[in-house]
Nucleic acid binder design. Structure first.
Length: 665
RNA sequence: GCCGGCGUGGCGCAAUUGGCAGCGCACUCGACUUGUAAUCGAGCGGUUAGGGGUUCGAGUCCCCUCGCCGGCUCCA
């Protein structure tokens, strides 16, 4: 009789033969591809020990998917090295929705190479190669991997995997070094890689994968290092799950604001103007103006005072603020004006440097400083739609979400230390309320606290961080704390918003700044007659109007709620004869402030409906003889549903109230 | 900024090994007058992103610039 061990399987105590593997336990469930023993994930081939607590890991679970994706990355790397023997391995971790592997290759991959790699992967998967774990000593690993310089570097960094590179823990993160051999049916080792594991039992267990794209990526994420070639892929527990993911990507593409911007004639980026500089067309202009008007109204109600400042300033202002010291790289270069030179080239008059402003706060500080301030005036809330210019690196501009010229809904609030707490809480409340009015309702906040390298008084930091956290508690939204993630001069709250298809966007920011009030020597006179330094809160709600516009466009997939829609109502006559009737309806709507058009063109009615549908107009009002006889119109909504023979009064009421209440239809 | 892929009427695309730049939509004009997603006909529109080169001949091959796309790095 063989020796027995006691183990707990999924909470049930069992007695099994020594030498039993996890695979033996879960043999009848093909979904199980690994096991968890205590907190550790192990291969199914792992031999169990007395006292182990074992849980199965299903391929469709988060952990299972990560294992699947990591194993698929190995298969890809094997395919690459078979096809490109000179390729050296970087790292190949699982990531959200997929995996990647980095390679150092003499020639970068061409998209066509990817197809070839894909085919080779199919072959490896069909072969059913087993992933076999093999512990090695550092020295043995170094010898085996002598041809893999990047792996050697990682071995040298073992134990500091986190510092080695994001993703590197997948290679060397374990307590001991291990190599995984890919073993063919006949026992021949087809390929091997330094890896912590665990892995699928065999390549056969990869149900669905797809290589997505190739890209350059710096070794260990440092732009001073060599750039490797990264191939991204995705892998899923089933063909259906993969299809669902690919459909999701297609849906995101369909909503892409850059595409919708052209289709709906909202905005464009004329080459003649320059990269990252947008123009808003009339349709986009209406949407933007409506967004801004509503924001202005709400700011007025909330006690903000409106200010205006120029787009350009002498350099001294940004020397005072410190921006030239810290962020000169991100600013458009100086315009050197008014210099005069003698014939021999020597300077007669030195001139001045002017800069486009990358931020509004210095200007607002000058407004604050324009005269002495009393504590009675505080909190002083200055608001401006301020246009700023930042020289974003050429590779980073992206549609409306990352541009070089944009307008911030920027506000700076000056308050006494006593007022800080209430001001922050009220502010957060205001911000979230306004975002909800634009149709965004799913929030998560992040509180970023003092970094290692900071300026100012530690007491101030503590006060501000506590006040920010208290504001979050009062707002009752979920938040997490980013320890040490604040900027060097201020702790902050960032509000992240989830859009209609679940993507998270960082929008609003609240910062408590102790640095600028000092740099600008801001003061107010207190009730005690003494001079005091105010706190300063930076706050942007949309962040950038352009970016917010892009996000809203994607959130609504271009089908803006009626209050924001560029054209809210379009009249479609059954025949030409009904145009005057619809014009009358239209002027009634127009008198109520509704943006309405009548399509009097010589297209057929069906064509006009198609056109309006593609333009995502919320309300189509059709009218023919039947409607006219009843003093009515017929609705067609964006979803294709209809409501026929509605009396004009009722129709006007329906539309006007939807706009007033800012509801989506 | 870095790596790779691209750039053909307003938009979406086609053009064999280098050999007459085409199609659909949009737009204009005309005919038609129809009850819920494309009526028919005619017409206008391109120095193939810009510049240079190779060639008898370049949308196609080479170089530079600009721009776009996907990543990386960055994002006060």
């Amino acid at each position: 009789m063989s020796e027995q061990i006691r183990i707990v399987v999924a909470g049930v105590e069992r007695q099994v033969d020594a030498g039993t593997t996890a695979a033996d336990l879960f043999a009848d469930d093909r979904d199980v591809i690994a096991a968890r023993i205590d907190a550790h994930l192990v291969d199914l081939a792992h031999e169990l020990a007395d006292g182990d607590q074992i849980e199965p890991v299903a391929i469709g679970s988060d952990e299972g998917r990560a294992i699947l994706r990591h194993s698929t990355a190995h298969v890809m790397a094997q395919a690459v090295q078979e096809l490109f023997p000179d390729a050296k391995l970087g790292i190949g971790p699982p990531v959200e929705n997929g995996f990647y592997y980095d390679f150092d290759v003499p020639e970068p991959f061409h998209p066509d190479d990817v197809k070839q790699i894909d085919r080779r992967m199919q072959r490896i998967i069909k072969e059913g190669q087993a992933f076999v774990r093999r512990p090695v000593t550092d020295d043995a690993a170094a010898e085996e991997l002598a041809d893999e310089p990047y792996k050697l570097e990682l071995i040298g960094l073992k134990g500091n995997a986190a510092e080695a590179a994001e993703g590197a823990s997948a290679e060397v993160g374990g307590e001991e070094l291990t190599i995984y051999d890919n073993v063919r049916r006949g026992g021949e080792v087809a390929w091997k890689d330094l890896c912590r594991g665990p892995h699928l039992p065999s390549t056969r267990h990869i149900p669905a994968f797809k290589l997505m794209r190739v890209a350059g990526a710096y070794w260990r994420g440092d732009e001073n290092n060599k750039q490797l070639q990264r191939i991204y892929g995705t892998a899923w527990e089933s063909k259906d799950a993969q299809k669902e993911y690919l459909d999701r990507l297609a849906e995101a593409e369909r909503r892409d604001h850059r595409k919708l911007g052209a289709e709906l004639d909202l905005f464009s980026f004329p080459e003649e103007i320059g990269s990252g500089l947008a123009v808003f067309h009339p349709k986009g202009g209406v949407v933007r103006k409506t967004m801004e008007d509503y924001s202005r109204r709400r700011h007025e109600e909330a006690g903000y005072e409106f200010v205006f400042s120029p787009h350009i300033t002498k350099s001294a202002l940004f020397e005072t603020s410190g921006h030239l010291e810290w962020y000169a790289d991100g600013m458009f270069p100086a315009m050197h004006l008014d210099a005069e030179y003698n014939q021999d080239g020597t300077v007669r008059k030195p001139g001045q440097d002017y800069y486009l402003k990358p931020m509004n706060c210095p200007m607002h500080n000058l407004i604050y400083k324009a005269r002495g301030r009393s504590y009675r005036e505080l909190p002083l809330r200055l608001f401006e739609f301020g246009s700023v210019y930042r020289y974003e690196k050429s590779g980073t501009v992206h549609g409306l979400t990352r541009v070089r010229g944009f307008t911030q809904d920027d506000s700076h609030i000056y308050c006494t230390p006593d007022q800080l707490q209430d001001e922050l809480a009220g502010l957060l409340d205001f911000v979230l309320g306004l975002l909800r009015d634009y149709g965004l309702t799913d929030f998560e906040a992040e509180l970023s606290t003092r970094p290692d390298k900071f300026v100012g008084d530690i007491e101030d930091w503590n006060t501000a961080e506590a006040a920010l956290e208290e504001a979050l508690k009062r707002a009752e939204i979920p938040y997490r704390i980013g320890h040490g993630e604040g900027t060097f001069y201020a702790p902050k709250i960032d509000v992240h918003v989830k859009d209609a298809i679940g993507r998270s966007w960082q929008l609003s920011t609240l910062q408590v700044d102790f640095q600028l009030p000092v740099r600008f020597d801001l003061e107010y006179q207190g009730a005690d007659g003494e001079r005091h330094r105010p706190y300063m809160i930076h706050r942007a709600l949309f962040g950038s109007i352009e970016r917010f516009f892009g996000i809203l466009t994607e959130h609504y997939a271009g089908a803006f709620p009626p209050w924001l829609a560029p054209v809210q109502v379009i009249g479609i006559p059954i025949t030409d004869e009904h145009v005057p009737y619809l014009e009358d309806v239209a002027s009634r709507l127009r008198s109520q402030g509704i943006r309405v058009e009548v399509d009097a063109g010589d297209d057929r009615m069906q064509k006009k409906i198609r056109t309006a549908q593609k333009q995502k107009v919320p309300y189509m009002l059709l009218a023919g003889d039947e409607d006219r006889a009843k003093n009515a119109v017929s609705f067609r909504y964006r979803d294709g549903s209809q409501n026929n023979g509605v009396p004009i009064d009722d129709a006007v009421f329906e539309i006007v109230s939807a706009v007033e209440q800012r509801i989506q239809v």
